[in-house]
Design a protein around this nucleic acid. Sequence first.
DNA 1: TATGAATGAGTTTTCATTCAT
DNA 2: CATGAATGAAAACTCATTCAT
Lengths: 202, 202, 202, 202
Amino acid sequence: MPRIARPEEAAQMRTRLMRAAYAAIAERGFAAVTLQDVATRAGVSKALVLYYFTDKEQLLAAVMERTDQVIRSRAERAMREAAASGPLAQLDAYLDALTIGAREHRDFYRVFLDFMSAGLRSPAIGKSTRSFHEGCAALERETIQRGIAAGVFRRDLIPAEASTVVRALIDGLSIQWLLRGDEPFDQLRRRMREAVLAYLGA
Amino acid sequence: MPRIARPEEAAQMRTRLMRAAYAAIAERGFAAVTLQDVATRAGVSKALVLYYFTDKEQLLAAVMERTDQVIRSRAERAMREAAASGPLAQLDAYLDALTIGAREHRDFYRVFLDFMSAGLRSPAIGKSTRSFHEGCAALERETIQRGIAAGVFRRDLIPAEASTVVRALIDGLSIQWLLRGDEPFDQLRRRMREAVLAYLGA
Amino acid sequence: MPRIARPEEAAQMRTRLMRAAYAAIAERGFAAVTLQDVATRAGVSKALVLYYFTDKEQLLAAVMERTDQVIRSRAERAMREAAASGPLAQLDAYLDALTIGAREHRDFYRVFLDFMSAGLRSPAIGKSTRSFHEGCAALERETIQRGIAAGVFRRDLIPAEASTVVRALIDGLSIQWLLRGDEPFDQLRRRMREAVLAYLGA
Amino acid sequence: MPRIARPEEAAQMRTRLMRAAYAAIAERGFAAVTLQDVATRAGVSKALVLYYFTDKEQLLAAVMERTDQVIRSRAERAMREAAASGPLAQLDAYLDALTIGAREHRDFYRVFLDFMSAGLRSPAIGKSTRSFHEGCAALERETIQRGIAAGVFRRDLIPAEASTVVRALIDGLSIQWLLRGDEPFDQLRRRMREAVLAYLGA
DNA sequence: TATGAATGAGTTTTCATTCAT
DNA sequence: CATGAATGAAAACTCATTCAT
């Protein structure tokens, strides 16, 4: 546990290590990642990883926590910026924020898939994956409510239910795209948008 | 690689080992499963596992392959039996066949989540997860086509696209239910049915 | 331990297994040979090997014992047949009998090298390698004595010493030939003959 | 694969491990040596052995390589020092350098015998045993040439052939001495010297 | 702060050997 | 006689973690 002499540099190093770990998980899979992988990728010694994170589990939990924050705040910002343009534009902005690039999306779902699985056994990690799901659902709920109010979505939707369904579509379609391996990213984006809009009755 | 003297007993033992492995994965996770786990659960020695399966990877690949077969053939049978009762009944039969019990469903998605992830790196396993997805999609496509023809589903659906979406709903909702941990199983079933029907425009 | 119901067939099977073991050692090396190797090569089950030989060590000891007998009796016969033609012809006959073919010689020294090493730790095997060395030395001694008596070899030779040296030449040159891997077999035979004759002062 | 912080200490540890391995091979035989043996003998943990050597094969290859270097450089030095005293003295110096003690010689040929055998299947090890043989042959060749030039050895010797024969005598006699187990070391030395001189026609 | 050195606990895998049929 | 099934013991190797510097 580092005594924080220079807090900023410490935070930088932690970020560097978490990024290295994220990349390592995306490439080799959660279970196969070793501290050596992370250290090598970050250009530091294996021991340093455990200097900044108590143990491997803590590092990995921090990775998911950070991933949750990064992705969700990007989505939030996008929605805020599109708030004035109406529910449909806001929904598009949200979906765009979650699918910014093929490489990024592939890496994210590789990592996320592993974390969801790991979260079933590790409470610390489970907390972050749930936080991500719930955070996203909250954003979706908001847009859905507006859309219902604005009359662009079906009247009979229950926002809490519908947001769960929207989330399921995003996860489910992304996972299939990931497993297929060769499907164009644009097809995923189009399909996701259409499915969500169809479900919402837009 | 045993030369099989009594084929039936050999098949029984293989099944016993695959079941033990399935249970072990559901409980401890794909990556954490050891041959010892499997052996202990099956009540045999560690070495016997490798007598029936060349190595750990082969065993695990066989587990996913068998799981694919078991689940899919159950779904197929259910659909065949409901074929006469119309598309809606057939869809219900299909969904019921995929959600026969809380315990079973939880175990299946725990295992399946892990296998999807593992399949990204191991071709042998990837083959089975894709086979499962494609097999299910084929069944869904069939029902959707009938539903469109019978006028109970939206006209503008493209069966190949719609089956992908239905699959996404089933996977996505199941995963969320799994992660939440405490949600009643009936709620998942109801939500799944409603979401699918809403999407299909029934 | 087989109760010898049909002694001849039992002996045949033992021979078959020893031959298979010999070939396996030549190919894979003494240490790497498994009972499965031997069984597969002999076309029988692994368990049968241990039905005819108490354990692996016994089998291997028997292999060396048999090899000793086969090679030495061949050399003896050759020498007996050449007995009338004088010491030089007898020496040639002896050397020819020990170097009947490249393949055979390579296999024999591969196996013999391993057995010499193994004999350092296993008394049963050591007995056979010593027996081979001593048996050969006896044959050599005999010829040397005749050669000295006939005046074709150096007078100052002490047969017991000289036979040891001749044996060293045969072993040492064969081992070098084996290690080099690509040297023509005829070169070994020529060199061996010349070295022996030079040493004996012929 | 340690990045070396203190190169000297690392080299010391590597040497310590190679010595331990050498002793283990001499005692238990190449094939029977385990990493645990080596570790125990070196007074370190099993894992440390693999910290310094990628795997068991690398360690063993390094042992033979080092043995080759140690023995050959001793022989070279001895010959250099005796260079002024004439070919016969140089030959004696060479033979003395190769037979410095019963214990050492026994260990060396135990190890060497195993390595020769192992070198037939492992190229890395074969390289070292060949290097040893060739290096020794080169030294022998040199002395033989001088001896011929000085008129103390037979005129008709071809140095390249003769060095091979000398090497065969050294190996062959040493192996027999080793197998016999109880023969006085001096007898080996005397016999070796006499056989070599007799062959060279001194 | 940072790291190389060192280790212990665990995992897969191999194989001689036993045993019931 | 012969074999497939089953096992226990041991081996190489991996890796998170600790520690001295």
